[in-house]
Design a binder for these strands. Structure first.
Lengths: 331, 331
DNA sequence: GTGAAAGCGCTAACAG
DNA sequence: CTGTTAGCGCTTTCAC
C-alpha cells in the first residue's frame, strides 16, 4: 500500500508538500499540486484514515451502540440520528454490544475509536458508560435512566405511556385487565408497568396475581404467556402487552384457541412496530416519538462535542394509536 | 486523557514495561505488573485503540456496508455474518453508504479503517469497490455480479427463484400471469424477471405488454402499479411481484377494490420478509437462504484475510414457501 | 511556496 | 525481566 511518503518521493517533493497538495491547501503551487496528484494517482494512493485520526486526535465519527446489529430496530430513530450526524459532517457507524465485556461496542467506547456515542443497548453496564464518557467523549443514553458527567439521557416517558394505555382500556369499560410483562429487569418494562399500576390504582382496580405473566418482550413469550393465561381458565376482558411483539404472539394464542379479538378479549400493545398495523385485527398500541427522540439525541451529542452545556435529562411524551383490537364495553 | 506514558511514569517503569504489563505479557514480574495496573487504574487509563491499530497495521474489525443503517435489512443475514466475525475474534461494524461519494461507507473502504468488508449496498459504484479491494483488504459483494482481485461474489440465484415462482404459478393452472417489476436497473430485479421470462417461454406463454408495470420494490409502488392494472380493465389470474413489499402493497390495492385473493387473483412474492406470513392471506413467496449466504460471506472473508485463495463467485439456490395467496385453477 | 522535523499513542525488536 | 529506541502514516508548526 502506497503511503504519502511514496507519493512525495515519486513527485520529487517533500512529505509536507505532498500532504498540503493532497488536502488542497492553497499555499502549494498549481504546478506542484498537479505533480503530486499525478503521482498519487499512479501509485493508487489512498490516505490512511487511522493515521490521520491519530494525528488529529479526532475521528469525525460517532457510534450508535445497539444490542444486536441484526435488529429489529426503530428504524425511524436510527434514521434521524443518521441525518443529524450527516448534517454535521460526521460519520455514523453502528456497533453491536453482543458478547459481554469484550463486545465491539465496549471496545469502541473504551478505546475511543469514535468521538462520541448514542447508546441503545441495555446490556452495557452503567459503570462502563459512566467511566467511558468524558470531556472529549460525550455519550447519550436512550434506554435507561442514567446521567453523569458528559453523559446525558434522552428518554421516552414509558410510565406515561403505560398509564395512557391502561386508562384507555378503563375508559372503554374494561375492569379486569392483565399486564403481560417484558423482562422484569428491563427499564422500559418497569416504566410501562408502573404506569399500568398507577392507572389501575386511580380507578380502584387491582390486578389478579395469576395474570402476572412475563413474555420477555418477544413474540414467542407473548404467545406462551397468553396460552398459560388461557389454560388457567379465567380470562381478563383486556390485556395490555408490554410491547407489540408480545401482543402479536398473544393474539396468535387467542386465535389458536378460537378466542376472538376484540369481541371476547381486547388487546393493546406498546411501540407501534410496523407489524402492528398488519396484525389481525390491527393492533391498538402506544406510539413512541422515535424520530424526535433520535434527532434530539443527535443534536445533543453535537452540542456537547462543541463544548456547549446541556441539560442532563430529556423525557418525551407518547401518543396512542387507536386501531381495532380494543372493544368498548357496556356495563 | 492519560496515555501509557503517564502510566509508566507514575508506576516508575519504562514505557515498554508498562505496555507489556498492560497486555499481560508473561515476561513482566508480578510485582511490576501490579504496580503498573495500579497506576493505570488510578489514572483511569484507557488504551487508545487508534494508535494501536496504526502500530499494528490491523484493526481486527470488518465492516458491513449497508445502503442505509435504518434498514429494513435481512436480519438473519446480518446475524450470521456477525456470528462468524465474533467467532474469528473480530469486530463487526455497520456503515451506511448514504451520501454518495463521501459516504461513511466509502470513507471506510478507501481509507482502510477496517480489515475488510461485506457489501450489501447497490449504491456503491463498481469501480470504487474494485479499486478499494486489495491484498490486505478483501471485499465480499453480495448484491450484484462483480468479481475482481481480492473481491469475491456471494449471490442468491434470483433467476432460479423467478423461474420457480413462475413455474409454480403455471403448475397451479395459471396462464395469464403478470410480473410487477422492481427498479429496472436493479440486478435482483433483472434476475427475477429473467427467470420469469424463461418459465413463461418454456410453457409457451407470453406476457401482456400492458401488464409490464414497475413498482420500484416498495410497497407504495406495488400498490399503485396494481391499481393501474385494475383500472386497465383486464386482470391476469396471477401476479408475480418482484418482491414481498410490492406484493403487500398490491394485495392492499386488490382489497381496496373488492378483489379477493386468491379466489379472483393469485399473488406470489419474493424474499419472504417477516410481514409475508402476516399478510392477509399469508403470502406465498420465494425464500432466500439468507443465513447461509451471510455465513458463507463471513467465512470467505476470513479465509481471504488468512491469505487462502477462494473461488471468485458463489451462487446459492432458493426455496419456495407455500402459503395461501395462490389458488389452484382447473381448466 | 517548500522542506525538515516533531510528534499523535502505541507496540515490538533489541540490548542489557 | 526491564529499558531504549525505532517506527506505524499522517498533519502541522517553523524555518528557509
Amino acid at each position: 500500500m502506497a503511503t504519502i511518503k511514496d507519493v512525495a518521493k515519486l513527485a520529487g517533493v517533500a512529505l509536507s508538500t505532498a500532504s498540503y497538495a493532497l488536502s488542497g491547501d492553497s499555499k502549494v503551487s498549481p504546478k506542484t499540486r498537479a505533480k503530486v496528484l499525478e503521482a498519487a494517482r499512479s501509485l493508487n494512493y489512498r490516505k490512511n484514515g487511522i493515521a490521520m485520526d491519530l494525528k488529529r486526535s479526532r475521528t469525525n465519527t460517532i457510534a450508535l451502540i445497539l444490542t444486536d446489529l441484526s435488529g429489529p430496530y426503530y428504524s425511524e430513530l436510527i434514521r434521524s440520528i443518521q441525518d443529524v450526524a450527516l448534517a454535521h459532517g460526521h460519520d455514523l457507524i453502528a456497533c453491536s454490544s453482543m458478547g459481554e465485556r469484550d463486545s465491539t461496542a465496549i471496545k469502541f467506547l473504551r478505546e475511543k475509536r469514535v468521538d462520541g456515542a448514542v447508546v441503545l443497548a441495555h446490556n452495557i453496564a452503567d459503570d462502563i458508560l459512566l467511566e467511558s464518557a468524558g470531556e472529549r467523549f460525550p455519550i447519550i443514553v436512550m434506554d435507561r435512566e442514567l446521567t453523569g458527567d458528559h453523559l446525558v439521557n434522552v428518554l421516552v416517558d414509558g410510565e406515561q405511556g403505560g398509564y395512557r394505555a391502561t386508562q384507555y382500556l378503563i375508559e372503554a369499560g374494561h375492569r379486569s385487565i392483565a399486564y403481560i410483562s417484558g423482562p422484569l429487569n428491563s427499564y422500559d418494562n418497569q416504566q410501562r408497568y408502573k404506569g399500568f399500576q398507577r392507572a389501575m390504582h386511580e380507578s380502584g382496580l387491582s390486578e389478579k396475581p395469576k395474570w402476572r405473566l412475563s413474555g420477555g418482550f418477544v413474540r414467542e413469550g407473548g404467545y406462551s404467556a397468553t396460552k398459560m393465561m388461557i389454560m388457567q381458565g379465567e380470562l381478563p376482558t383486556a390485556v395490555f402487552y408490554g410491547n407489540d411483539e408480545m401482543a402479536v404472539g398473544g393474539m396468535k394464542a387467542f386465535e389458536d384457541h378460537g378466542i376472538s379479538i376484540p369481541d371476547e378479549v381486547s388487546v393493546i400493545g406498546f411501540d407501534d412496530i410496523e407489524l402492528a398495523g398488519y396484525a389481525n385485527p390491527p393492533l391498538t398500541t402506544v406510539r413512541q416519538p422515535k424520530s424526535e427522540a433520535g434527532s434530539l439525541a443527535g443534536h445533543l451529542l453535537f452540542q456537547m462535542l462543541d463544548g456547549e452545556s446541556v441539560d442532563e435529562q430529556f423525557k418525551l411524551g407518547i401518543e396512542l394509536v387507536e386501531r381495532k383490537s380494543v372493544r368498548k364495553r357496556e356495563h
